[in-house]
């Protein structure tokens, strides 16, 4: 994770567009300016970043299902539960399942676990639209390769 850059997913561990599932590895950094404010003397990964982690994990799944033809943007978070504190240095596993690939939108159910114990879960809705420009699409493809999205899922 690079919290300051909103890069929550370190590596895609398993991705199956046919089964509509994804798993990702995410390591919370030992240090970050985020922890200086959240909270002084008691550093915790902010809950909104736990939700962002679920959203990004599910987002990689949606992108793979659509072979990166369109971009999912977060528009709704439902039933979010933050079940446990997450601290610097903790290793997380995120997973998501595509509930519905709608026309112009997608819905996933996702969760984060640590040592087999669920620490957060939420249902995420994305609006799915054409990439607004080539710069973003190129950056998403570059990031996809960095986090090990299989090359076969990057193109139609």
């Amino acid at each position: 994770m690079r919290l300051e850059y909103f890069q929550m997913v370190d590596r895609i561990a398993a991705l199956d567009p046919e089964a509509r599932t994804v798993r990702a590895d995410c390591s919370v950094p030992d240090a970050s300016p985020v922890f200086e404010g959240h909270f002084p003397g008691h550093p915790l990964l902010p809950g909104v970043l736990m939700i962002e982690t679920i959203a990004q994990t599910g987002g990689w799944l949606v992108l793979a299902v659509l072979r990166f033809a369109r971009m999912p943007f977060l528009v709704q978070v439902k039933e979010a539960k933050l079940r446990a504190f997450v601290v610097p240095g903790q290793t997380l596993q995120a997973e998501a399942r595509l509930l519905h690939d709608g026309s112009g939108y997608a819905v996933v159910a996702g969760s984060i676990s640590s040592d087999g114990k669920k620490v957060a879960d939420a249902e995420i809705t994305y609006r799915v639209v054409p990439f607004p420009n080539d710069t973003l699409r190129a950056q998403m493809l570059e990031t996809a390769r960095r986090v090990a999205v299989p090359e076969a899922f990057l193109h139609g």
Binding site: V75, Q76, H100, D101, G102, S103, G104, Y105, V107, T125, R127
Partner: peptide, 25 residues
């Protein structure tokens, strides 16, 4: 439009369809 996405999701699920919202738009 956001609430309508919720409605669309529930309708798609209830009827087992995929309403072509983008085409309609």
């Amino acid at each position: 439009s956001l609430d309508f996405l919720d409605v669309a999701f529930a309708i798609d699920k209830a009827f087992g369809i995929k309403m072509p919202l983008e085409q309609w738009t």
